[in-house]
Each structure stands twice: as structure tokens, then as C-alpha cells.
């Protein structure tokens, strides 16, 4: 089948897109609030980014440039698959360069290159409810959100400190949005949490299986939960990237042999590559850390 002929632009029919856009508008109006939406079955499995794909499909226009990453990389299988999907069904331009993209769909990472105004970052979210593993009932967690009844989340952090001496949550680290809603930042490492705060780009979150959309409008206050005497600390690496030398960025550990050999390289492949290839324009200083 020639897909473009069979399916609507960006796969979803216009009615569905309108439904999703309405949910997005509500989500933007109430930052951090989970808006239920009538998630559709997509041609990729639930849990593989259907929420993100639906959000992307609803915001994508013909003149957009799309970047898709998974684990920070443009070339992981699922990122390739989703990028191909939109190339086929929407025919939009795609890129691996963060700064060239207008829409970036991501799973588990925020690019190292700072985002700018006008860009949209779409997160794929498996479990949107930050309280889910403390309270499995949707009826109860929705009430807790409505009443801003978030003591339980701090109990969890308290337990971490009591047991380990520090908060032992390393990813999907809960945040408070604009002083009101408790939000799951999706399973991004807590290293990325500070990038969400006052971000100039629009951040949209789609959970397909759980049928929820939420959003952070540009320049929204996003605070990682903590205690006064145990403040939030992003993960730090005690070394730089073995390939490009960058420091203060998130690293992947690559096992190189079965005798304990390993190396640490940038998780953000575009960032790493653009530091190693001759500059398209003026490159930043070799060890300059983007914030």
C-alpha cells in the first residue's frame, strides 16, 4: 500500500487530531494536570510511544522539521521506527540536529543542546501518574491531585533517606509544577530535571495506553521534590565523554569486552557528533557545558 494515499496527513484523521488538540490546550492551560483523552490504537504497540506519536501527529504541520530520539540517540531502533512512520505518513522533513528541529519527540532524555522558544518537545510517557506506585487507584490519585494532597510522595522520599541516607530515585523523579500539580517527568533521568525548569520550549507529554496528556508551557516553574536538609541533586558523572570530551552531560556506559572494559560516551548522539565533526558554524569551546 502506498501509505500517503491511504492515510490522512500524519496518520490520524482530522477529528481525532482536533480532539487531541483540545486536550493539549487544556493541558497547557493547567500546567502539570493530567488531561484524559481518547487515545487511539496506533500502528505501533502501546508502551512504545503511542502517546507521544499521537501528540506529535496532532501538532505536526507540513513545514515542521521533526527529530526523534530514544535514550538520547537518533539511531536507536524505536526512534528510527517512529521517524520513519512520520516520514511515510506526513512526509515532513526530519533531522538529527536538535537546533534544526521544530518538533522533537523523545523517550527518556532531554537533548543536551538547550532548547529555544518555538520548539516543541514531545515526551513519550508510560505511566503518567506520579502517585501510581504509592496508590494504585485512579479514583484516589485523582482526588489527591484535586486536593493537592501530596504528603504520601514525601513519605516515599523520607523512606529513601531513612534507608539509604539519600533520596534513591534516579529517574522519573517527581516534580511540582508551577507550585500546584505533582507531575511525573516521564522516565527521564533526574539529571534532566533541571532542564525542564523555565524551559523556553513547549513541553508536551503523551501517555497513550493510560490515555493522558499533560504539558509544561514555556517558562514554567518545575521544582524537583526534596527536603530542606536533603536537597535535590542531579546525577553527576566523575568523568567526561570518551569520544568528544564533553563534561557535565549525561553519559552512557558502553561495555567493550567481557573483562570489565567499559567506556563512557555521550548519551545524546547528536550533541556528541556535532562536537566531533568540523563545525557547521562556530563550535562552542571544547569543554563548554551547555546549561
Amino acid at each position: 500500500m502506498s501509505d500517503a494515499a491511504v492515510y490522512n496527513f500524519a496518520y490520524l484523521d482530522e477529528q481525532t487530531k482536533r480532539m487531541i488538540r483540545r486536550a493539549l490546550l487544556k493541558a497547557v492551560a493547567i500546567p502539570g494536570y493530567q488531561v484524559p483523552f481518547a487515545s487511539r490504537e496506533m500502528p505501533m504497540p502501546y508502551g512504545w510511544g503511542t502517546g507521544g506519536v499521537q501528540v506529535t501527529a496532532a501538532v505536526l504541520g507540513a513545514d515542521d522539521t521533526l527529530k526523534v530520539i530514544d535514550q538520547g540517540a537518533d539511531d536507536t531502533t524505536n526512534a528510527v521506527s517512529i521517524r520513519k512512520f512520520f516520514e511515510r505518513t506526513a512526509g515532513v522533513a526530519t533531522t538529527t540536529h536538535t537546533s534544526d528541529a521544530t518538533v522533537i519527540q523523545t523517550r527518556h532524555r532531554i537533548p543536551e543542546t538547550p532548547l529555544r522558544e518555538g520548539q516543541i518537545l514531545v515526551y513519550q510517557v508510560p505511566i503518567p501518574e506520579p502517585l501510581r506506585f504509592l496508590e494504585p487507584r485512579e479514583t484516589e490519585t485523582r482526588r489527591q491531585h484535586a486536593l493537592e494532597d501530596y504528603g504520601l510522595m514525601h513519605v516515599k522520599l523520607y523512606e529513601d533517606i531513612a534507608r539509604h541516607g539519600h533520596i534513591a530515585t534516579t529517574y522519573a523523579y517527581p516534580v511540582k509544577v508551577d507550585g500546584r500539580y505533582l507531575m511525573d517527568p516521564s522516565p527521564t533521568p533526574k539529571f534532566d530535571n533541571p532542564k525542564m525548569d523555565m524551559c523556553p520550549a513547549l513541553q508536551l507529554f503523551g501517555a497513550g495506553r493510560e490515555k493522558r496528556i499533560y504539558a509544561l508551557p514555556p517558562y514554567t516553574r518545575v521544582v524537583s521534590l526534596d527536603f530542606e536538609d536533603h536537597p535535590f541533586e542531579p546525577t553527576k558523572f566523575d568523568r567526561g565523554c570518551a569520544l568528544c570530551g564533553a563534561e557535565g552531560i549525561y553519559l552512557d556506559e558502553v561495555v567493550t569486552d567481557d573483562c570489565g572494559g567499559r567506556m563512557f560516551v555521550c548519551s545524546d548522539t547528536d550533541f556528541c557528533e556535532s562536537r566531533r565533526t568540523p563545525p557547521r558554524a562556530a563550535a562552542p569551546g571544547l569543554n563548554e557545558v551547555p546549561r
Binding site: 504528603g151 514525601h154 513519605v155 523520607y158 531513612a162 526534596d226 527536603f227 530542606e228 536538609d229
Partner: peptide, 26 residues
Amino acid sequence: RMGVSAGGNVGERLMAVGWRHYGRIR
């Protein structure tokens, strides 16, 4: 909460009313 430590159980109400200092809660 049977899965939460004694300290966490006692501290829950304090955290619910806004206590955010681990040492003082403990």
C-alpha cells in the same frame, strides 16, 4: 501503612501539612 517504616508512619501527617525538613521530621 504496613510497608512504610515506623518513622515514615509517624512523619506522614507532618509532611502532609508541609513539613519539609527531614531532620526535624525524624
